[in-house]
């Protein structure tokens, strides 16, 4: 008794919206503090090798 329709299902619309929300997030610039943190980690690594 499965009913199939050719119309976009709720699931398809939900997934499409999910992608749009997620893609919108992906367009955002990352905060500078992330890059600063990586730079800091790099410089710490340079000065003291972990073992």
């Amino acid at each position: 008794m499965a009913q199939k329709t050719g119309k976009p299902s709720a699931d398809q619309r939900i997934d499409e919206s999910l992608k749009r929300v997620y893609d919108a997030q992906l367009q955002e610039q990352v905060p500078d503090k992330f890059l600063e943190l990586i730079a800091k980690l790099k410089s710490t690594e340079g000065s003291q090798d972990h073992g």
Binding site: Q3, S9, A10, D11, R13, I14, D15
Partner: peptide
């Protein structure tokens, strides 16, 4: 997905326009 469909009042297969 089921919960979102409920919250957004989406009945499966039913779209506002067509």
């Amino acid at each position: 997905r089921r919960r979102l469909a409920e919250l957004l009042d989406l009945d499966d297969g039913e779209t506002p326009e067509m």
